[in-house]
């Protein structure tokens, strides 16, 4: 089992720590034909799953009134940067309940001490 851990360790990279409930902005490299550009996706992180190279996180945002969710592999080399925009104060590990809420009810409280 150790050799597996060593191999997974090799894929580790510097990531700004973030938790479920935080509003994050993910910059991802996107290839369009020959050209490569960076696309950012900003929203609330509603879940983190898995461990090692398999770890993923789910980001939800409301785009033109429609809820959009995207799952990213945490250690993907295509992710250029993950920035925490706002620290959220939540009591749950998975925020799937946000899916059924609208407007003000779909908001996450900001963590009091982390205001920058």
């Amino acid at each position: 089992m150790d050799a597996i851990k060593v191999i997974e360790e090799g894929y580790k990279k510097e990531i700004q720590p973030f938790r479920v409930g935080d509003t994050i902005s993910v910059s991802m490299k996107i290839k369009e034909g020959e050209k490569e550009r960076v696309q950012t996706f900003t929203g609330i992180c509603i879940a983190r799953k898995g461990s090692g190279t398999r770890e993923t996180f789910m980001v939800r945002k409301i785009s033109y009134g429609i809820g959009v969710e995207k799952i990213f592999p945490l250690l993907s080399p295509l992710i250029e940067q993950i920035k925490v925009v706002r620290h959220g104060d939540v009591r749950r590990a998975k925020l799937y309940y946000l899916r059924g809420k609208k407007g003000k009810a779909a908001k996450v409280k900001e963590k009091a001490f982390s205001r920058k």
Binding site: A3, I4, K29, G52, R54, P77
Partner: peptide, 22 residues
């Protein structure tokens, strides 16, 4: 056979691999 995991390629694809002590 030591076990399986997943590994990234440079272009960002996640590939299932078996690790073998050979």
């Amino acid at each position: 056979k030591l076990g399986m995991t997943q590994v990234f390629t440079e272009d960002g694809r996640l590939i299932p691999v078996t690790i073998i002590e050979a």
